[in-house]
Amino acid sequence: MISEADTVNRIQDLTTRSLRLWVKLGWVFPSLGPHGYVFEEIDIARIELIRQLKRDFAVSNDMVPIVLSLLDQIHGLRHELSSLARAVEAQHQDIQQDIIAMLNDNLDCNKE
């Protein structure tokens, strides 16, 4: 758990004002502790990303939530996909082979 002040200190060029704005806009979801917002490492990494998007890549305020939402969806999909792959991996070899064959068939169909 990292306080708001520590968060602002840890990230170059970040002001308390913009951090609060980003929270208000729903780009970052800190927890609410007894003395105000508290952040976790994942929040810090997300804030750092937002700052880079805005400063280095000139992404506009309208675009930031779109980028974040697409990224979060990709991470969600990647997680589900890896869970599914692990579930396949836990199956008997014959079932695994069937699934691989089916996936390859699907890829071939899509090419045509």
């Binding site: 979801f29 994942i42 997300r46 974040l68 939402s69 979060d72 969806q73 991470h75 969600g76 999909l77 997680h79 589900e80």
Partner: peptide, 8 residues
């Protein structure tokens, strides 16, 4: 907290 499965 940012986990999203709206793609499903």
């Amino acid at each position: 907290q940012y986990y999203s499965t709206s793609g499903f």
